[in-house]
Design a protein around this nucleic acid. Sequence first.
DNA 1: CATGAATGAGGTTTCATTCAT
DNA 2: TATGAATGAAACCTCATTCAT
Lengths: 244, 244, 244, 244
Amino acid sequence: MSAPPALSRRKFRRRAEARPDEVLDAALDLFIRFGFAATRVEDIARRAGLSKGAVYLYYPSKQAIMQALIERAVVPIAARAEELGRNEGDDPRRTLAAIVRMLGGGVADPRIAAIPKIIIGEAGNFPELAESYRRKVIERGLGALTAVLRRGVETGHFRALDPELAVRNVVGPLLAHLLLAQVFGLRPAGDPATAGDGGAEDDEGAAMSRFLDSHLDILLNGLLATAPDGSDDRPDDASGGRPR
Amino acid sequence: MSAPPALSRRKFRRRAEARPDEVLDAALDLFIRFGFAATRVEDIARRAGLSKGAVYLYYPSKQAIMQALIERAVVPIAARAEELGRNEGDDPRRTLAAIVRMLGGGVADPRIAAIPKIIIGEAGNFPELAESYRRKVIERGLGALTAVLRRGVETGHFRALDPELAVRNVVGPLLAHLLLAQVFGLRPAGDPATAGDGGAEDDEGAAMSRFLDSHLDILLNGLLATAPDGSDDRPDDASGGRPR
Amino acid sequence: MSAPPALSRRKFRRRAEARPDEVLDAALDLFIRFGFAATRVEDIARRAGLSKGAVYLYYPSKQAIMQALIERAVVPIAARAEELGRNEGDDPRRTLAAIVRMLGGGVADPRIAAIPKIIIGEAGNFPELAESYRRKVIERGLGALTAVLRRGVETGHFRALDPELAVRNVVGPLLAHLLLAQVFGLRPAGDPATAGDGGAEDDEGAAMSRFLDSHLDILLNGLLATAPDGSDDRPDDASGGRPR
Amino acid sequence: MSAPPALSRRKFRRRAEARPDEVLDAALDLFIRFGFAATRVEDIARRAGLSKGAVYLYYPSKQAIMQALIERAVVPIAARAEELGRNEGDDPRRTLAAIVRMLGGGVADPRIAAIPKIIIGEAGNFPELAESYRRKVIERGLGALTAVLRRGVETGHFRALDPELAVRNVVGPLLAHLLLAQVFGLRPAGDPATAGDGGAEDDEGAAMSRFLDSHLDILLNGLLATAPDGSDDRPDDASGGRPR
DNA sequence: CATGAATGAGGTTTCATTCAT
DNA sequence: TATGAATGAAACCTCATTCAT
């Protein structure tokens, strides 16, 4: 992402400190395409431009690569969620919307969206993986959201709901959106989503944007057509506008 | 579970038509605990009281066992969703709530809840499994829900939302609830959920009930504290009551 | 082959003594098509119209079926060769030709031709099979031919060749013809040989006849264009005529 | 057989380019003794001084080992036959004899003679093996011989026989000789032939030589005692002389 | 740092054969 | 006689990991 200070010797870089990250890049590419189990360490090595043995100089096991991948790709998201959630002064509605949109950004990035599916799949085989993900991602991210919900209930911005239950309504739709696409290739109609590589990322982004609008609108305002007088006097809508 | 009337001849039980189901029971138990890939056919056999080879008398492959499991456990749920959705005369709010509660019932049953996780995990390795699940479960279930949403929008019971997006808000929270429990062992506080065998099923059911109330309430009414006057004149609430 | 005395009850025949032969028929069909190893006992059973277990009432093992098949199909041929060879009064040339033509008849019958190939293939796995075939077929058949050759040398009808070596020139071409067809599907050009079921058996027979003429002609007269005067005064040619 | 010059580093022999050939050697030994199907990859590995997995570093499957064996041992023979056959200037009798003697050399070498038997045996189970053998060995070798025969007929050196049929008389006796020995352990009397390893290879060679003389004599001159005047005026005998 | 040859445990599937009925 | 459910050994191939160089 951030360019290294000296690119001039890139071709000749020996003992590059970038190696671990290159391994991670390669691994992620392959995990996304073939899954964790079906990806061989040798493939990762080849794609990273080194030998099988060399991979083990950087990571002690295939599992550790996955671990590092989580750390690199997903933990920052949880951290960002925590950070956004700490803006205690803010209107909780706005905070919630901000976090959801941020998470949506992650879901829209294929390099991030692939992770949860892999975790779910490998949780049985590699309990430590699941455990670490739970501790570092789920609990922090969900904790931040739960806290915002709790605060909103306390401030009267949200109705009196159990935040621990309500948080499932916050992340669930994102999860559903992600898994429908990742596992079953299902995307909302009018959303070509171009399986190809060069894919129209704008489309993907636009589709996600539409979905986030819809999600936040439903989450905050509900599905029901409210009584004619009731709907208008909601003060300021944090959701960023109703979908057309 | 229920003891067969005559156990005396158990050793000689031949041509047991129950065998296929016994294999499925055993397989499900193990798939739940260890996942599909990590469960060996021999383990399934032993747990079903058979030899390895005998399993292949009933199912031609391990994958076929999974297939049958889906058929037995999950397809009926999708069918039931379709059925409920066909009650066109009904208030769409009531129909939607009925379907969600029915799905929640499935999620609360560990023998059913385990399936989606397995599918998600193995989708990469066994694309046909995912494909079949998509066709038989996802498309039917989601289709039913989408239709109800669309009808509700048309009748004016629901606000003008894109049903294909909104459906993610219907199933997503259920999915989140399921996966948090299945993958990470996370259940809402005050919900012991007893990993043990003798588990308090009442607790599980009660917890699910609380969650479903919350989910439907948020789904239908939104998170926001409505204007004081607006909340009361919503005609008949299909959600089955607000959580305390 | 030979019709059973009472065909009237064929449909109702219980405990038919024909059962063993029916098993053999079925086995041969399948061995021809799929080979010995690839044919399952259950398939034989099904084709013979009985259950897997029942096959074992008649033959103690799959190998024993093969054994019986040899006995039934090939041993008679060796016996016939011995018999023909015993016609000591005859001109050895005529005797030799008769045996070769008789063997050719066997080679032309797919139900017989399949056997040698199977034996060759399974000799390693089932030494007893090979051993039995050697004793009952090879040694008797080759013995008969060797004896004829020896006699011919003694009577001066044949040149002074080692009969044990020369016998390879008698059976070898037949073997080559058989294996080229059986193993590689190779038949002399102008020989459609119709893999199909309804196959023109006449063609097969005609082709074999042409081959036998050629074989005997070469065997007896050699390949070389003889000196103009030498070829005509050979007394009576036993080969049945030169090929056109 | 011959000891490698430096055995001291055997344990550390890395990047041995000889490995593939060692695997082939081991496989051939075992295929000869137990057949293709009955030989386990692990046995090949052990005999080659490797682990099971290492074999797969060199050959992707057991079938590929067989394929390579054919390539190594038999294809060169077919190529040599083609080459010899191309000597168009030569007397076809001499050419034919040269090819037959060359083939006989192959048949006398147990490491080569084993191959055809294996192919014949496994043709049913591994059709691709048979197909490849047919294309690379049978068609080329038989093609070369057929061409020589055809030329001989045209030049008048051979009588007017169908070359496609006559070729069976050329290779058949060799095949018979080979299979009698390989499958049934039958060798011409006065031919101890020592199944053991240290075997008197001279005997084997001498026996083969006797057989080739006999075969060519019969093939070219026929079995019949020719008319007293006819036998002597055959010009130059290409067969290398009558036996004894 | 880097290589890549080598290891060996591990699991699905097949099928001849047995045996209770 | 006949059934067919059940057994269990057997073998190919994969791949994470190690280690001599």
